[in-house]
């Protein structure tokens, strides 16, 4: 399991109902079921990953964040998780709204477009930045809605979501020391993980 997934798992209380949107190979839901006794389910867009997950006995549904969340009833989960996907969905604000409709909490991780390396590349070269995290050229990237940590916080404020916890981490998921300053985190954090709830 990736380190950022471990950080997400630590935000989730044992024995709760969890929906992982973009569950990939199912590592997180498997971990949550086995170590935390959660009723954890997944939605995944890649059919190969869905088949592999079900073949491992995990409850995963083929679908995506933009089109399938609307079919879940209100408050059907304690947590709805969206890993590294917010920037790739068609309507990020609507996806967040759906997540906090069907779940009491939302756990969202995304790559931070405000990282200093990206800012520097754009400033010095005048071209779209390319880094380890943002590694596909602009004309091929599925990441159509990149945002910074401050952008995301502004959206949460606008939508009236409460940020219970947040972390800024480097690509490997190591916790970074700038967690007390949002401005520093927005400059030095490569990814962010947020735990939100409705007001």
């Amino acid at each position: 399991m990736r380190l950022d997934q471990r950080l997400i798992a630590q935000m989730i209380a044992p024995k709760t109902r969890v929906l992982d949107v973009g569950s990939g190979d199912g590592a997180l839901i498997d971990h949550l079921f086995r170590t935390r006794g959660c009723d954890a389910r997944g939605i995944e867009i890649d059919m190969g990953e869905v088949t592999r997950s079900i073949a491992h006995g995990l409850p995963v549904m083929h679908g995506d964040a933009d089109h399938d969340l609307a079919h879940y009833p209100d408050d059907s989960f304690d947590y709805v998780v969206l890993q590294r996907t917010l920037q790739a969905v068609e309507r990020p604000a609507e996806v967040l709204r759906q997540m906090l409709r069907i779940g009491r909490h939302a756990v969202v991780s995304f790559p931070n477009f405000g990282h200093w390396r990206l800012r520097l590349q754009l400033l010095t070269s005048g071209r779209m930045p390319m880094t380890a995290v943002w590694h596909t050229p602009w004309y091929e990237t599925p990441n159509i809605h990149p945002c910074t940590i401050r952008d995301f916080l502004a959206l949460c404020k606008q939508e009236g979501y409460v940020v219970d916890r947040w972390l800024a981490v480097d690509e490997d998921g190591e916790r970074a020391p700038w967690k007390r300053s949002i401005r520093l985190a927005n400059l030095f954090g490569e990814q962010a993980v947020f735990l939100l709830r409705r007001r």
Binding site: M47, V50, T51, P59, M61, H62, G63, S76
Partner: peptide, 18 residues
Amino acid sequence: LARALNRAGANVSFVEID
């Protein structure tokens, strides 16, 4: 069908095999 099961809050897996 899978979406109807979702609306019912069921634990549902759904896969389309190629």
